[in-house]
Design a protein around this nucleic acid. Structure first.
Lengths: 233, 233
DNA sequence: TCCTGAGTTTGCGCCAGCGCAAATTGTTCC
DNA sequence: GGAACAATTTGCGCTGGCGCAAACTCAGGA
């Protein structure tokens, strides 16, 4: 197996604060893999063996209920760490990770976590900062689900996607991976029918353009109005 | 200021795995405070200066939306660590912590976190395990809010409270701090009216007994049936 | 090119649960 | 003991959004 190149990670925020040598040392223990679109990097409830960093692509983190309903916990973008069960003392993954498009992923065996976090405290701290952010985001989502109407929640979800993974095009900000009405419904606790109706309405109003597994936000400003349920003249 | 006695923490899971000497050493940096019922230990958005362990009482962690609506993120029970913004690299508290009854709390300045976690890895690991559990619980709540009806969510919330903070009495499991219909509504994303109706119905069915700021679960088994929305003969 | 299947749109009817309002009950503090 | 307040209960009407069903549209493969 050829050694992995440091350039893979040197630009990622997670590894900032490490010297080039340290970056190379961390990489020595990593294994690189490709995952085809719609395949699983790991499955909910499975024994956690590794933690991961996404090098290229987009990943959907999904929780499935006992009766088979799915809820999308979050999307992972390039450069993010995920599957960090080890760092939090869990032995199984609480959700599944599915490649939303073809992906390249680095993996480290969980057994190395104590060493890595011990030898490179900056790396450990960055990871825990990420965990903190996610906890807070998840709580924000609970608050939204508790206090907002469906239209507001869907608007918020689109704005978040546009900010985190949006790609600027001449006609607006396009979400740069395939996302269906069903996916958006599973992010916001509603049905694909309701999402479809909302998107149709917004398209009529010129706020978005959308197609099959594709959404482009044309007027983020007016989408914010929907998200905050303000006066919609 | 008198030194704090090691017996305060020696029985807590969080400090298991530390020698008596280490426990005393950690305690040397702690400050003990009392908080009267309904007073704040810290406020949402405030600069995070300390992290805490609850020695006695019950604490409500609350998030308030810009327009003043409140959502209860969780309850903290005796022995739990909370306000761990420092460990997650945040500089402000993402929610307020309110004493649900008179409380005794230990506080450590945030500045000590790196030292403590470094010198006592067992303690750091236990904390991150707690964070992991909370992240998972919060995600479970998102799933519940997305997929369950109000009756199921309220039943789940009561069962969780009964398990975590229930006190066995001759008539059932009593939640051992004052909790209003409004509180339960803020935990489950509904209104106090709906909660009141549900509790009335369950009381008619002999599943619970409830009074002003008080709920006693008499038949947890039948409450599980409500939580899972199974056949309610 | 046509076929097939997945993704999407839209109409229609219904109902869980909210909002409002008023009555009632229990607690606390003079 | 009683006044004042906080918490709870309950009735009533309405509606946001779901469930079902059917039609439609697009992309990719044979």
């Amino acid at each position: 197996m050829a050694a992995l190149d440091r350039s893979l990670i040197s630009r990622l925020p997670l590894f900032q604060g490490l010297t080039p040598d340290e970056q190379s040392e961390i990489l020595r223990d990593a294994r690189s893999s490709r995952y085809a679109k719609e395949t699983a990097i790991f499955e909910q409830e499975a024994e956690a063996h590794s933690f991961f960093v996404l090098i290229a692509g987009h990943i959907r983190v999904v929780r499935t209920t006992p009766d088979g309903q799915q809820v999308i916990a979050r999307y992972i973008s390039e450069g993010e760490i995920f599957g960090v069960a080890a760092a939090l003392g869990r032995t199984t993954y609480p959700a599944s990770a599915i490649a939303a498009v073809d992906c390249v992923v680095l993996a480290w065996p969980n057994a190395l976590w104590p060493d890595l976090a011990g030898c490179f405290p900056v790396f450990g701290a960055a990871t825990y900062r990420t965990v903190g952010t996610r906890l807070q985001e998840t709580q924000t989502r609970v608050v939204e689900m508790s206090t907002e109407q469906v239209e507001q929640r869907v608007a918020h979800a689109l704005l978040r996607l546009a900010n985190q993974t949006g790609r600027k095009t001449d006609s607006g900000i396009e979400i740069d991976f395939p996302i269906s009405r069903q996916d958006i419904a599973e992010m916001t606790g509603t049905t694909l029918h309701t999402v479809s109706r909302l998107l149709s309405k917004w398209e009529d109003n010129g706020i978005i353009v959308s197609g099959r597994q594709k959404v482009t936000v044309k007027d983020a400003h007016r989408l914010v109005v929907r998200a905050e349920n303000r006066d919609k003249r």
